[in-house]
Amino acid sequence: MMNSINTNSGAMIALQNLNTTNSELQTTQQRINTGKRVSSAKDNGAIWSMGKMQSASSSSLNAVKDSLQRGQSTIDVALAAGDTVTDLLSKMKEKALAASDTSLNTASFNALKADFDSLRDQITKAVTNAKFNGVSVADGTTTKLAFLANSDGTAFTVTARTLSLTGIGLSAATTFTTTAAAAKTMIATVTTALTTATNKLATLGTNSTGVDMHLTFIGKLQDSLDAGVGNLLDADLAKESAKLQSLQTKQQLGVQALSIANQAPQSIMSLFKG
C-alpha cells in the first residue's frame, strides 16, 4: 500500500464504517424512543400509509360506537317504559275484572273505576317520559331512528313502536260506565291492548339485542384494526435492545479503528529522521 500524507485510505474506510454504524445506531435509538419501527413516511412510505389509513378507520369507529350506544340507551329507555305499561295494563285488567262483580256496591264500583282511570293516565305519563337525549321510539313522535353501523356511514335502523294509549288501541277516554257488564267488556279490551304492547316490546327487545351484538362486533373490529396497525408500525423492542448493545460495541470499535488509521501517516516521519 502506498504511503501518503494526502490520502489515508484506511482512515477513509474506517470513517465510512463508523458513519454507517452511527446511522444504524440513530435509527435503533429512534425506534426505542418512539416504540415504532415505522414512525414517519421517511422510514417506509408504503407501510406508513397503510398504517395511517387503518388507524384512521379504527378512530372513526369511535363515532360509530357512540352512535350505537345512544341507540342502545334510547331503546332501553323505551323497554323500561314498556315494562311499566304492561304492568299498568295488568293492573287495569285486574280492576276491570274486580268491577265486573255484580255483588259490588256503588261505592266499591266507583273506587275501582277511579283506580282504573288513574292507571290509564299513568300509561301516558310513562310513555311521554320515555326519552333519551330528547329522542323516543315509544311515544309516537318518530317512525324510525337510524344510527351509525360502520365507518362508511351505513345505518342501523330501528323502527319505532308506539306504546302510547292510541298505539296500543286505547284512548284517554277509555273507561267503563257504571255497570258491571261494561266493566266485563273492558276486560277484553285491556287484554287486547296488553297483547299489542307485549308484541311491540318483543320487537324492541330484538332490536336492542341487535344493537348490542353489533356494538360488540364494532369493539372487536376496532381491536383487530389496532392490532394490525401495531403489526405494521410497532418495533420489536427486545430485538432493538439487543441490536442497540451490538451497535454500541461496534461504534466503540469503529472509533478505535479510525484512531489507529489516523496514526498511520505519522510513521512516515521516521523515514526522514537522520
Results as ranks from 00 to 15, higher is better:
residue 3 N to Q: 15
residue 6 N to Q: 14
residue 8 N to G: 02
residue 11 A to K: 09
residue 12 M to S: 12
residue 13 I to T: 13
residue 14 A to E: 06
residue 17 N to C: 05
residue 18 L to E: 01
residue 21 T to G: 10
residue 29 Q to K: 03
residue 30 Q to H: 06
residue 30 Q to D: 09
residue 39 S to V: 03
residue 45 G to A: 14
residue 46 A to L: 13
residue 51 G to L: 07
residue 57 S to P: 00
residue 58 S to N: 01
residue 61 L to K: 07
residue 63 A to C: 04
residue 64 V to Y: 11
residue 65 K to F: 09
residue 67 S to A: 04
residue 68 L to M: 10
residue 71 G to S: 10
residue 79 L to V: 06
residue 80 A to C: 04
residue 81 A to C: 04
residue 86 T to H: 07
residue 88 L to N: 10
residue 93 K to S: 06
residue 96 A to L: 04
residue 99 A to M: 08
residue 100 S to N: 04
residue 107 A to W: 07
residue 111 A to H: 01
residue 112 L to D: 13
residue 113 K to V: 01
residue 116 F to I: 00
residue 120 R to H: 07
residue 121 D to G: 13
residue 125 K to D: 15
residue 129 N to D: 13
residue 135 V to W: 06
residue 137 V to P: 02
residue 141 T to K: 07
residue 141 T to M: 11
residue 141 T to L: 00
residue 147 F to H: 09
residue 150 N to L: 07
residue 160 A to I: 00
residue 161 R to T: 14
residue 162 T to R: 12
residue 162 T to L: 14
residue 164 S to C: 08
residue 170 L to I: 04
residue 171 S to W: 08
residue 172 A to V: 10
residue 173 A to F: 02
residue 176 F to K: 11
residue 177 T to N: 14
residue 178 T to S: 14
residue 182 A to D: 13
residue 182 A to V: 10
residue 186 M to W: 09
residue 187 I to Q: 12
residue 188 A to T: 15
residue 195 T to V: 12
residue 202 A to P: 04
residue 205 G to C: 08
residue 213 M to W: 11
residue 220 K to Q: 11
residue 223 D to G: 06
residue 224 S to V: 04
residue 230 G to H: 01
residue 232 L to R: 01
residue 232 L to F: 02
residue 234 D to N: 02
residue 235 A to N: 00
residue 239 K to I: 10
residue 248 Q to E: 14
residue 249 T to E: 09
residue 252 Q to W: 02
residue 255 V to W: 03
residue 259 S to E: 06
residue 262 N to Y: 03
residue 266 Q to W: 02
residue 273 K to R: 12
residue 274 G to E: 13
